[in-house]
């Protein structure tokens, strides 16, 4: 579904992504973990071209994202229309929700279908109500974001992304800005999506959740994929010392990792 070839991204002198390769298949749930500043979020934001990559290729269903390489090897930016078309098929959920504060929850969810897909109002409304009920917020349809808790806002944001009927969902630390007691309600919505077969890339610090929901876990550090594997493999028998170090520091206290002796 999405194929990433050797992408490199830097902000001035700071090298953020140093050659990432990844392929995600339809229906797969890939969870990306790693310390802050490892480039996880930037990587996700490159996938829908919110950040422009410096080099490499990204293909979404065999269509290039952001840039295209001509047969002569020249890199040219793709047209705005095509980019919008690609983005509309990838839903994104942000750490800080980014709901539109001047619209009700319902209007937030209706906005994409109305403006981008050009759907009729009644149709968009029905779809939005259905999605709000899916995330358990039918009774909040007429509330403005400022009247909702963080967890509720994030669930509306998920409904808003789903309203575009995306083929792929990108979650950028969806629970990092939430009070601890509100994390569960958001994670359970994401889990539900996983069981329905949605293809997802999730950046998170919730290790228990990662282990439960992921088909594949990626550990990133310093702009590279250090280790990739099944959740069981990564969480029980991490191969790379950096992975072990990271997991032991984040899991300290509530989950024990059996350490294989390296000798």
């Amino acid at each position: 579904m999405i194929k990433v070839q050797n992408i490199i991204k830097d902000f001035g002198k700071l090298k953020v992504l140093k050659g990432i390769n990844l392929e995600v298949k339809q229906g797969e749930v890939v969870v990306i973990i790693g310390p802050s500043g490892s480039g996880k979020s930037t990587f996700l934001r490159c996938l829908n071209h919110l950040e422009a990559i410096n080099s490499g290729n990204i293909f979404f269903e065999n269509q290039p994202v952001g840039f295209n390489q001509t047969p002569e090897g020249k890199i040219v930016p793709i047209k705005g229309k095509e980019l919008c078309q690609l983005r509309s098929q990838m839903g994104m959920v942000f750490q800080r929700f980014n709901l539109f504060p001047h619209m009700t929850a319902l209007s937030n969810v209706m906005e994409g279908p109305l403006t981008v897909l050009g759907k009729a109002k009644p149709e968009a409304r029905d779809l939005a109500l259905e999605l709000l009920s899916k995330v358990g917020l039918s009774n909040k349809a007429d509330n403005f974001p400022s009247q909702l808790s963080g967890g509720q806002q994030q669930r509306v944001a998920i409904a808003r992304a789903l309203a575009m009927q995306p083929k792929l969902m990108l979650f950028d630390e969806p629970t990092s800005a939430l009070d601890p007691e509100l994390v569960g309600e958001v994670l359970s919505v994401i889990k539900k999506l996983a069981t329905e077969g949605m293809t997802m890339l999730i950046v998170t610090h919730e290790m228990a959740f990662a282990r439960e929901v992921a088909d594949r876990v990626i550990f990133m550090d310093e702009g590279k994929i250090v280790e990739m594997g099944s959740p069981d493999q990564i969480f029980t028998t991490p191969r790379h010392p950096r992975t072990r170090e990271f997991l032991s520091s984040v899991l300290r206290g509530y989950e024990k990792i059996p350490y294989p002796q390296v000798g």
Binding site: L50, G80, S88, L99, G112, T115, M164
Partner: peptide
């Protein structure tokens, strides 16, 4: 907030939209 533009673009809106 910059996130507003990002949220709008990520839905597939054009810059003018």
């Amino acid at each position: 907030d910059k996130g507003q533009m990002e949220a709008a673009l990520s839905m597939g809106m054009t810059y003018p939209q």
